[in-house]
């Protein structure tokens, strides 16, 4: 099957994006979709807002010409993470946007972007208390179960105090 020149993506609210297929050669989801049978009109990317998809596509466009071997696994320890100045936009964004980009990268299965966003998430979590972490990422959404477990964990924490 020959690859089409352009791919159309549809976000959650019906906005469409048409980009050259070369941009998305690192997205495993898109590659799987291209290989699959059936209608190739447009690919639905649910759970992703137009703003986020635009950002992801910008990332893909910047890296479309990269000659480096595509990452098979974002957690590959043999390939150390190297910060790329072209990705600085991802480092300055607010927490909730970063979270949405992380999810979008995971949904589209772009290992390079997953690694970039996870790296940024980790550096923001690093050194924060559990409360601060919760506050960073939408405290309102905290499920009841999570509040319960917090108390439970609190006890474990006391146990964890230095023994004599």
């Amino acid at each position: 099957m020959s690859d089409p020149a352009n791919i159309t993506l549809v976000t959650m609210d019906g906005t469409t994006f048409t980009v050259p297929s070369a941009y998305l050669h690192r997205s495993k989801l898109v590659q799987d979709w291209l290989r699959s049978e059936g209608d190739k009109q447009a690919m639905e990317v649910k759970h992703v807002t137009p703003f986020v998809l635009q950002g992801v596509l910008n990332f893909c466009e910047i890296h479309a010409e990269d000659t480096s071997e595509p990452l098979a696994d974002p957690a590959d320890p043999t390939k150390p993470f190297e910060a790329d100045p072209r990705d600085d936009a991802f480092r300055g964004m607010p927490d909730d946007q970063l979270l949405q980009f992380t999810m979008a990268a995971d949904i589209l299965q772009i290992p390079e972007l997953v690694r970039l966003t996870a790296q940024e998430m980790a550096s923001r979590i690093d050194g924060k208390s559990p409360d601060q972490i919760r506050a960073m990422f939408n405290p309102d959404d905290l499920a009841e179960e999570d509040v319960d477990s917090d108390n439970e964990m609190g006890e474990v924490g006391e146990e964890g105090a230095i023994s004599k």
């Binding site: 974002p74 957690a75 993470f81 992380t102 999810m103 995971d106 997953v114 690694r115 996870a118 790296q119 998430m121 980790a122 979590i125 690093d126 050194g127 924060k128 208390s129 559990p130 972490i133 919760r134 905290l142 499920a143 179960e145 999570d146 319960d148 477990s149 917090d150 439970e152 964990m153 609190g154 474990v156 924490g157 964890g160």
Partner: peptide, 26 residues
């Protein structure tokens, strides 16, 4: 997803931070 979370924890790998993360939710 758990894969992404595990990747983040893997990058952290500082035990103090991991202990804090373990107390965020179940």
């Amino acid at each position: 997803s758990n894969e992404v979370l595990l990747l983040i924890f893997d990058i952290l790998y500082d035990q103090k931070s991991l202990a804090d993360c373990s107390r965020v939710c179940r």
